[in-house]
Amino acid sequence: MTVEVKQLSKWYGQVIGVNHLTFTIEPGVTGFLGPNGAGKTTLLRLLTGQLKPSQGTISLNGEEVWNNHRLFHQIGYCPEQDVFWNFHSGWNFVVSMLRMQGYSREEAEIRAEKAVEAVGMWDVRNNRIGSYSKGMRQRIKLAQIWAHDPRILFLDEPLNGLDPIGRKSAIDLIKKMGAGGKTVVVSSHILHEIEEMTDTIILINHGRMLAQGNIYEIRGLIDTHPLQVTIQCDNVNVLTTELLGYEYVQSIQFDRVQNRLTVETNRPDEFHLRLPRILSENKINLQSLWSPDENLDAIFDYLVR
């Protein structure tokens, strides 16, 4: 199922929620990444037809979302908010949600059984939701979205409050669904969470889309930004002296105890090309080399600054 967003804007009076967004989401897992208040939840609520676009269009497989309740047979939505009818038990909640999806009681119970078991809530299914811990509430919220086997899932900060085991099983389930051909859209402000689920991301800040694509493609967009490279070797003094002579090396941080130096370069390609020659010409043994900012944290920091 494909999500197509064209020139989408949403504003509330003078406040802009999202601003001129255009993107397409294909089956698989896609991450919405951005700090709190970036507009991720507003965007998800627009995509699930809860809010009406001020401008632009949203379509799911060619169908408009706003005021189109029929689409919800194919949509699963997990809200960020920790909200429930607290008088429900976990079981009743999932069954009620399935009943509202249009299933008979019998079918709803069969589906609820699978979903509740999948999130590890079987033993406590009959307890009132009000008595659940935050992690349990999050898990029962996840159970209600995949119980009806939707083709597209929108998950707003789905790992909130989950313990490490719960996180792992949720991540595995999300990845499995993406691999199974479903379109899964996950929002998070925690970068490594998204990184664990997908490398296809959409970066959002202040309601604007900063970048979309593969993490490495996005990295390519910011080639002009300096890259940090940490090198551990047996002769940091010589290597430092050599590197200082190159114009594309902007700064070097030195750690003699660890035999390590961190180089900041504004031309990463050139740097990576020259480094082996410098090492070999000066007979320096390289022990390790990595880039501390080649993860989403760094990319995100660069883009939102």
Binding site: T48, G49, Q50, N67, H69, R70, L71, F72, H73, I75, Y77, P79, Q81, V83, F84, W85, M97, M100, Q101, G102, Q144
Partner: peptide
């Protein structure tokens, strides 16, 4: 107020 409207509005039922 309880924000449970979210669940009602994301079901395949007319409003």
């Amino acid at each position: 107020e309880e924000r449970t409207l979210i669940y009602l509005l994301t079901r395949p039922q007319p409003k």
